[in-house]
Structure formats: C-alpha cells, structure tokens
C-alpha cells in the first residue's frame, strides 16, 4: 500500500523521478551528492585540470610566467617532435614491443587458462591459480630485481654456469635480446592474472555441448577447436581490441628501470622519452607535446577499436556499466 503512494514512490524508485521538481530531488538526493563530491574533486584536480594543462604544448612554457604569461608558439613543439630522431626511436620501440607482445604474450593466458581448466582436482587447480596470480601484485622493481638475481651477470644462472666451467652470458644487459626479456618479464608477472577472465568464460561454456560432441565421436582436439575456442571468442576479441586501442602504452617502470642496463636505443619508449627529455632538461612544452601526441593517438585508437568491436557485434568498452 505504502509503496504505491506517490511520496514513497518518489523516495525509492528511479522511474518517473524526472517529473519531480529539482528542489524536491535535491532534498531527496543531497546525501548521495555529498558522498560523491570528494572523489569528483580529486578527479577534477588530478585528471581534468592537467588535461587542460596540455595547452602548454602550444606554448613556450616557463614556470615563472605560468600558463597565462607564457608565449604561444603554435605547432612549433610538434614540428620539433616530428624531426627528432629520438622521438621516432621511442615510437618505433613502443610499436615494436606492442606487436611482439601481441604475438608472444597475448596467447599465453588463453593457453594457460585452458590448461588450468583441464585440471580435474579442484584443490590442485585453486593452488596453482593462487601461485600464478601472485606475481601480478609484485612491483616492477621487485620483478626486475628478481630477474636480475636469476638471469643477471651475478645471478643464479651465471653462477651455475661458471661453476660448471662454462662462460656465462648476461641476458639482462643485451640490447638485442631486450624485447624478449621484457616480454618474458610480462609473462611471468601478468600472464597468470590474465587467465581470470578466460577461466570465467570457460566456466560459462555449457558442458552439455562437450558431452554431446563426445558422444558424437568428436576427439579432444576437435572439441577444443569447435566448442572451447568459439566459446572464448567474444572475450578474446574484446581483449584484443582493447590491447590494440592501448597500443602506445607499454608501461613506464619496466623500461625506466632497465634503461641503464641496455641503453636508450633499445629500451626507450614514449613514456620514458617524455621523462628523460623533459624532467631532466626542463623542456616542459616539448614533453607536453609528446605526451599530448601519445594521448591523442591513444584516444583515436580506442574510438576506432570500439567501432570495430561494435562491428563484430561485441559490446566494446563504452557500455561498461
């Protein structure tokens, strides 16, 4: 009874509230607003204000004159950027690393999830899951330090080789092998965690399909090909598209940390380029231009990737909630 009466209805359900005058809605919702305001304030200060701050890319910014006092220089910084061989080196490294990891990192969680899913003992599976998820929570400094202790010049591998009378080689300082090294580190750190979403998709596949196929004489591999992989298709496509939309983001810390060991030629990516070029020299506007370039290309890639997702009949990322 009470729930049908107008005031209670206005108090509880969201349908039809737009008809209420703003003042009544405010009286009803002020607590919700008050709860949201602090987080909104932080996002404005640390996300939206810096986003606007990117205008310094079109200035010759100096901290003394500030954004309002610094002279405008149009696209000068971008012209400088495009004629800078170091920028092209960083861009090339970034794209190469993304492409390499698409081939050698991306399939690993899928394969690992299928393997884990085939483990019959629940307990054993949970144990292995617990172990492989764990490195996701280690910092990059820790991961790099661990790799150094195992594979580095003074590490366990070199130590064992030396004691066996062989000449050790140092994987950690070889620029040519760097791309393999960083991919191996990424696999070690995050491939296990990456299985979570695939395991969920696997669990959602109807087991009757497997049973029917088996009864019809489909072998293990045929079932994998005709049931498991089609079942994973939406998730694989979604993650693939997301990764493509994120192509210019390969992370900062992993490359920053290993720059000294292998040199900037092999290890410089866009983020580290901005750091070294700007914070070390004070070329604020130039660094902002490089960052803005990366942000805009990233934005375009995400929008395009999302279009592609819709084309494939997938949800994409806009409809997150």
């Amino acid at each position: 009874m009470l729930r049908r009466s107008p005031p209670a209805d206005a108090l509880t359900s969201s349908a039809g509230t737009r008809r209420l005058p703003l003042r009544a809605r405010l009286r009803r919702d002020w607590q919700l607003l008050a709860m949201t305001v602090p987080a909104v304030a932080l996002v404005i200060v640390f996300h939206y204000v810096p986003t606007l701050g990117n205008v310094i890319a079109f200035q010759d910014y100096s901290p003394y004159d500030g954004v309002t006092g610094s002279p405008w220089v149009g696209f000068y910084n971008f012209q400088w950027l495009l004629s800078d061989p170091e920028f092209w080196n960083a861009l090339r490294n970034t794209v190469t690393i993304t492409a390499f990891q698409l081939v050698f990192y991306f399939p690993v969680p899928i394969a690992l999830a299928i393997l884990l899913d085939s483990v019959l003992s629940r307990r054993l599976r949970l144990f292995i899951q617990g172990v492989v998820y764990m490195p996701h929570f280690f910092s990059w400094v820790l991961v790099v330090a661990l790799f150094q202790q195992i594979l580095g010049g003074a590490g366990l591998l070199a130590q064992t080789l030396r004691q066996a009378g062989h000449e050790p080689w140092n994987v950690m300082t070889n620029p040519d092998a760097f791309i393999v090294l960083v991919t191996a580190q990424s696999v070690w750190k995050d491939a296990g965690w990456g299985t979570i979403i695939f395991l969920a998709a696997l669990a959602a596949i109807n087991t009757n399909l497997y049973e029917a196929a088996a009864v019809d004489g489909a072998s293990r591999w045929r079932r994998l090909w005709h049931i498991t992989l089609p079942g994973l298709r939406p998730v694989i496509l979604l993650l693939l598209i997301l990764r493509l939309g994120d192509a210019l983001n390969v992370g900062f810390e992993q490359f920053f940390l290993q720059r000294d060991a292998v040199g900037s030629e092999a290890s410089e990516v866009l983020d580290t380029f901005v750091y070294w070029r700007t914070l070390m020299t004070g070329a604020w506007s130039y660094g902002a231009a490089a960052g803005l370039f990366k942000g805009l290309v990233g934005l375009i890639l995400i929008v395009v990737a999302n279009k592609v997702a819709h084309r494939f009949g997938e949800q994409g990322i806009y409809k997150r909630s």
Partner: peptide
Amino acid sequence: LLFMFLLTFLFTPGMIPSYLIVR
C-alpha cells in the same frame, strides 16, 4: 558525474601537466 569518471578511461592527461599540477 558518472560520465566524468568513465571519461578518464579514454584519455590520460600526460606526465608533464600532472607533474606541474602537483608542483
């Protein structure tokens, strides 16, 4: 307000402007 949060997925402000704000 929700849109404000969701929009942050699409664009990161960049290292330099963020640094300048903190400073």
